[in-house]
Amino acid sequence: MTTAANQPASQSTVVVGIDGSDTALGAARWAAEFATRHALPLTLLHAIPKLHWDFASADAPAELDGSTHADGVLVAAETAVRSTYPDVAIHTTAVKGSVATTLVDASDDARLLVVGAAAADHRALGSHAVRIAHRALCPVVIWRQPVAKRTGKPLPVVVGVDESEQSTRALAEAFDIAGTLHAPLTVVHMWEIGAAVGMGDLGGEGPMDWQLLDVLQTQQRQRMDELVEPFASKYRNAHVSKVFQDISPAKGLTDLSREAQLVVVGSHGRGKLADSLFGSVSQNLIHHAECPVLVVR
Rank of each mutant, 00 (worst) to 15 (best):
H189G: 07
T79E: 10
E205M: 14
W30V: 05
Y85P: 13
V159I: 11
H38V: 06
Q245T: 13
I286N: 02
V158W: 11
L273H: 06
A94F: 08
Q261A: 02
R135Q: 10
A195I: 05
V14N: 02
P207K: 07
L213N: 03
Q220D: 15
A39G: 07
L212I: 00
L137T: 08
E290I: 11
S21P: 00
Q211W: 06
A9W: 11
F175K: 07
P156F: 04
I90V: 15
V295P: 01
L103P: 02
D201A: 15
D246E: 14
A119L: 03
G279W: 01
Q11M: 02
F244N: 04
T79D: 08
A62V: 10
V188A: 06
R236L: 00
G271F: 13
P154N: 05
V188C: 12
E229D: 12
G126Q: 00
T151H: 11
L64H: 00
R297D: 01
A238L: 14
V240P: 07
R223P: 00
T180E: 14
N6Q: 10
A58E: 11
D176H: 12
V114Q: 03
G97L: 01
P86V: 06
N284W: 13
L262I: 07
D54Q: 06
V114G: 01
G266C: 03
A70T: 01
P249F: 13
V159H: 00
R169P: 00
A289S: 14
A100T: 04
P41W: 06
D225I: 03
V95W: 11
A4M: 11
S167C: 06
A289R: 08
I177T: 07
E173N: 10
S241G: 15
V95A: 15
T93D: 13
V161E: 11
F231Y: 10
K234M: 09
V16N: 06
G194F: 01
V296H: 01
V240C: 03
V187S: 05
K96I: 00
A4K: 13
L44H: 06
P41C: 05
K149C: 11
V264W: 07
H189N: 09
D22L: 10
L103M: 05
S282E: 04
A174I: 12
M190W: 14
V263I: 07
P61I: 00
H189P: 01
R123S: 09
T151N: 11
V81F: 09
L185S: 05
V293K: 05
I132V: 11
T180Q: 09
A4E: 13
V99D: 02
V159P: 06
H239S: 08
Q11A: 04
G179H: 12
V88M: 07
V14F: 08
